[in-house]
């Protein structure tokens, strides 16, 4: 009984880490540019597909194809920012929401049109597939363990990046006040592009981590819709909040799938979201948004 419970918590944490990583992508972009990227899940899907295609070429090792896929996604992320997002910056939030929703539609449709990707479900071959790791009586699949480890490493890296590098500090400055950052000589537009690169790269990592669990298909980006509650619960402007939000959603889903009636699992994330929004409208770690005159 207790073991089953712990087992559920563990797999919830693993899935929650993926939600957290996707949510992290939202939060990075939102903090810097106040754009909410509804296509984050689709960036993740593209990352997984690119890794799949690279892996399918056979001549490079798995790790190299992962690195290349992440780099490719970083380039795509930057290109999307330059082409589509920068022209609408400063317009009402509605336009920006609609344009990223349009991007999501476009990316999802495009993925199913590309030959070799299509509407089928693919399996991303990983060297750690089908292995399990036992902790006493608890058994964790290597895929789940990998997700948790990579998330921890990535969080440490991002933390160090924002804390200790010039560029990271510049990004923090932009997220606090764009105009002041601009006056201080920070190239705001270029840094924004870079943030999209990082966010797309994080999304690609999330996609590759998720691939052994849900497989790779054109609709896998819909998990982005689960990552929204994670980001909002965390407060949409907070990087640790995104991970914590993701973990909460992951654990709640795992438990409600086991102990509550059918169908509750699919909405549990949204019920938690609404509950948090009603109690704390700016999320658990959110900044206060009321404007003063």
């Amino acid at each position: 009984m207790l073991n089953e419970f712990l087992q559920l918590i563990l797999s919830g944490i693993a899935i929650g880490c993926v939600y957290g990583l996707v949510a992290l992508g939202f939060v990075l972009i939102y903090k810097a540019t106040e754009v909410v990227n509804f296509a984050q899940g689709e960036l993740m899907m593209f990352g997984a597909f690119i890794a799949l295609t690279m892996g399918g070429l056979q001549f490079m090792p798995f790790w190299l194809s992962v690195v290349l896929a992440v780099l490719a996604m970083a380039l795509i992320g930057g290109a999307v920012e330059r082409a589509v997002i920068r022209p609408v910056l400063g317009q009402p939030i509605f336009s920006i929401v609609m344009i990223t929703i349009g991007l999501g539609f476009f990316a999802r449709g495009l993925a199913s049109l590309i030959p070799g990707w299509g509407t089928l479900t693919h399996r991303l071959p990983t060297p750690y597939a089908d292995q399990t790791v036992a902790f006493g009586e608890l058994v964790l699949s290597a895929g789940h363990l990998m997700i948790i480890l990579v998330t921890i490493v990535l969080c440490i890296l991002l933390f160090a990046f924002f804390r200790y590098t010039r560029m990271g500090v510049a990004m923090q400055a932009i997220s606090q006040n764009q105009l002041a950052a601009h006056y201080m000589g920070i190239p705001v537009a270029r840094v924004n592009t870079l943030i999209w690169c990082i966010s797309a790269a994080v999304a690609a990592i999330a996609g590759i981590l998720l691939a052994p669990i849900t497989f790779v298909h054109a609709n896998m980006g819909l998990i982005g819709l689960k990552a929204f509650p994670a980001a909002v619960i965390g407060g949409f402007g907070s990087i640790p909040g995104a991970i914590v939000g993701g973990l909460i959603i992951g654990i709640v889903e795992a438990l409600s799938g086991r102990y509550l009636p059918d169908g509750i699992k699919d909405v549990s994330a949204y019920v938690v979201l609404l509950a948090v929004l009603i109690i704390r409208p700016n999320g658990l770690f959110g900044e206060k948004l009321t404007k003063k005159v």
Binding site: V84, M98, I99, I101, G102, L103, G104, F105, F106, A107, R108, G109, L110, A111, S112, L113, T119, A218
Partner: peptide, 12 residues
């Protein structure tokens, strides 16, 4: 996927 692609492109 054709229809969502076109919908998305038109929206953008």
């Amino acid at each position: 996927g054709l229809q969502p692609t076109i919908f998305g492109a038109i929206l953008i």
